Computed example of a mutant assay.
Amino acid sequence: MIDVTDHGGVAVLRLNHGAVNALDLELLSALPGALSAVAGAPAVVLTGAGRCFSAGVDLKRIVEGGAPYVAEFLPALSTAVLALFDHPRPVVAAVNGHALAGGCVLAAACDLRLMSAGTIGLTELAAGVPFPTVPLEIMRHATGPAVSDLVLTAHTLDPGAARAAGLVHDVVSPDDLLPTAVRRAEHLAAAPAPVYALSKEQLHRPTHDRITRTRPLDDPRVLELWSSPTTAAILRNFLDMLSSRGK
């Protein structure tokens, strides 16, 4: 589900979960543990297996599981994204293919984002679901004013456009992606570990303050909308549309 390899001391975590590394309860529950297991590594690289970094939330599981599944899934999503965002050592995203919706959020939770192929963006509104507080605030931290356009239009960007928008830091060829990500991670890890961790904590503090302030208000409304029969019908139609495009 998450393959872990050592590259000269840098821990490479590779999402390896189905054809497109879709985010479900099991994958999200595994991510904090995988990060804890490599806590001693000087840096971490997050990438995907196959042709995708992650195509986002497994919407079929959302529809099939209904409200009980959603009630477990949404907190697991926020917990996983926060574990990545708050990891004290450098974390580099090596975006090797499509990074959509929740996949885009995972990349945004990393300190540095490199991309080689595919598209990246926030497609939640196209699917008819709102953002939980944690993913939204982490996107705000990563992209600043660009977050409004990303959220409200649901546009996806190719690597060059993503770099221009500040969503990724550099575009790298597919063959060079992982070696470059490891090298950049090593460079970030050259700073003393306590200094890097404190600097990261200081940079993230405004995001945590917003999460603490708004989560009690927003997340119950998000849960209600994700769990509603109306949303389930919208998601079924969205999945049908995606299926017809793939034929």
Rank of each mutant, 00 (worst) to 15 (best):
S227Y: 14
V45K: 09
H98Q: 15
S228Q: 05
L77W: 03
L122I: 12
S228A: 12
A107M: 07
E137F: 03
G246A: 15
R163T: 04
A67H: 06
R89M: 10
F85C: 05
A93G: 00
A11R: 08
L125T: 13
L178F: 00
T153R: 12
G246E: 14
S228T: 02
S54E: 05
G118W: 10
Y196V: 14
D3L: 15
L23Y: 11
I2E: 04
V20M: 12
V168S: 08
G97N: 14
L59D: 06
P135T: 01
A162M: 01
L114C: 02
R163F: 07
G40A: 10
V92M: 03
G97R: 07
R184I: 00
G33I: 10
A37V: 15
R61D: 15
T119H: 14
S78T: 01
P179D: 05
S148A: 15
R221E: 15
A127R: 00
P68Q: 13
P145W: 01
L239W: 12
A76K: 07
V57Y: 14
C104H: 02
P229C: 11
D218P: 12
D6I: 08
V105Y: 11
P68G: 09
A83E: 04
G8Q: 06
V222E: 05
A154W: 09
L46Q: 09
A181G: 01
I211D: 00
P220E: 07
G103E: 02
I138H: 14
L217K: 12
A83L: 09
V95K: 06
A232H: 05
V70Y: 13
P206A: 07
V147P: 10
V92R: 00
I138P: 03
R245A: 14
D175S: 10
D6E: 13
P132N: 02
T133W: 04
A94Q: 04
D176R: 09
R215H: 14
F131G: 06
L106V: 09
T231P: 02
S227D: 03
L112R: 01
A197W: 01
C52Q: 08
M115R: 00
A233E: 15
A80L: 07
R236A: 01
L223V: 11
G118H: 08
V105R: 04
M241P: 06
R221A: 14
R245E: 13
E186V: 03
A94R: 06
A232K: 03
G103H: 00
L28F: 00
F85W: 02
D219P: 02
L35I: 07
R163Q: 13
L152K: 10
V38N: 01
C104M: 10
A190S: 09
T133L: 15
G160C: 09
V147S: 09
F238Q: 10
